[in-house]
C-alpha cells in the first residue's frame, strides 16, 4: 500500500506543479494544435484521395502525437535534475514508485491531448470512424506505451549532456514498433475491420515496456 501511496503522491505532485507552471501542457498542446492546423490546411478533407485515406491519415495522427510527446515529456525528469529536486526524491521515494508515478502523469497527459486532438483531427480531415471502441483502444494503449517509453528515456536523458538531441535518438527506435501497431489499430478503427492479434500485440508491447521500465529505472535513477 505504501508503494501505491508513493505513486499517487508523485502523480498528484506532478499534476499540481504542471497546472501551475504549464510547461509541458503548453508545449504539447501548442505543438499538436499548430501541426494539426498545418496538416489540415495543406491536405484538408479533399487533400487525400478516398482510396488512401484509411492508410494515410492514421499515420499522420500518430506522427503528431509522437512529436507532441517528444516536445513535452522529456522535461518530466530534466526539471527534477535542473531544479535540484531529484536528490530529495531519491532520499524519500522508492525508484519504482517514482517511475510509476511519472508514467501515470505522462499517460494522463497524453490521453488528455488525445481527447483534445483526435476529435479536431477527425473533423478537420473529414475522417469517419467505423469502430469507435477500437479507436479508443488504440488511443489508450498507444498513450500507455508512448508515455511509458518517453518517461524511461527521459530519465536516461536527464542524467546526460546534450539532452535535446538524445531524446529522439534514444526514444524513436523504441517507439517504432509501438507506432506501427497503434497505426494499424487506428486503421482498423477507420475501416471497421482489423487483422487478428494487433490489439494483443500492442498490449504486450506496453506490458513489456512497463516491466522493463520497472526493472531498469532503479539502475538509471540510483547513483
Amino acid at each position: 500500500m505504501w508503494w501505491f501511496r508513493q505513486v499517487r503522491a508523485v502523480f498528484v505532485k506532478d499534476w499540481r506543479t504542471e497546472l501551475r507552471t504549464r510547461h509541458a501542457l503548453h508545449t504539447i498542446a501548442l505543438f499538436a494544435v499548430s501541426t494539426l492546423l498545418t496538416v489540415s490546411l495543406a491536405l484538408g478533407p479533399a487533400g487525400v484521395s478516398a482510396e488512401t485515406r484509411t492508410s494515410t491519415l492514421p499515420v499522420i495522427l500518430w506522427i503528431i502525437l509522437l512529436f507532441a510527446a517528444a516536445a513535452g515529456l522529456p522535461r518530466c525528469f530534466v526539471a527534477e535534475e535542473e531544479g535540484h529536486t531529484a536528490a530529495a526524491l531519491r532520499l524519500t521515494a522508492a525508484p519504482s514508485a517514482v517511475f510509476a508515478g511519472k508514467c501515470a502523469f505522462a499517460v494522463a497527459l497524453l490521453v488528455g491531448l488525445e481527447l483534445l486532438l483526435t476529435p479536431l483531427f477527425l473533423a478537420l480531415m473529414g475522417l469517419e470512424i467505423a469502430d469507435a471502441a477500437m479507436l479508443v483502444t488504440a488511443l489508450v494503449l498507444g498513450a500507455l506505451g508512448l508515455g511509458t517509453a518517453s518517461v524511461l528515456v527521459a530519465a536516461m536523458v536527464a542524467q546526460a549532456r546534450g539532452r535535446g538531441a538524445l531524446f529522439p535518438v534514444l526514444s524513436f527506435p523504441l517507439l517504432i514498433p509501438l507506432l506501427l501497431l497503434a497505426v494499424e489499430l487506428t486503421r482498423g478503427a477507420v475501416a471497421g475491420s482489423l487483422p487478428p492479434g494487433v490489439a494483443e500485440q500492442l498490449l504486450l508491447y506496453d506490458a513489456s515496456l512497463i516491466v522493463a521500465g520497472l526493472m531498469l529505472f532503479p539502475v538509471i535513477w540510483n547513483p
Binding site: Q6, R16, T17, H84
Partner: peptide
C-alpha cells in the same frame, strides 16, 4: 544543493515528502 519544488508552497513540499 538540496532544493524543493518552486511552484509548490513550503507546506505542500513537506506534505509531499511526508507522504513519500
Amino acid at each position: 544543493d538540496l532544493s524543493f519544488y518552486e511552484a509548490l508552497s513550503a507546506a505542500e513540499n513537506l506534505d509531499f515528502f511526508a507522504r513519500l
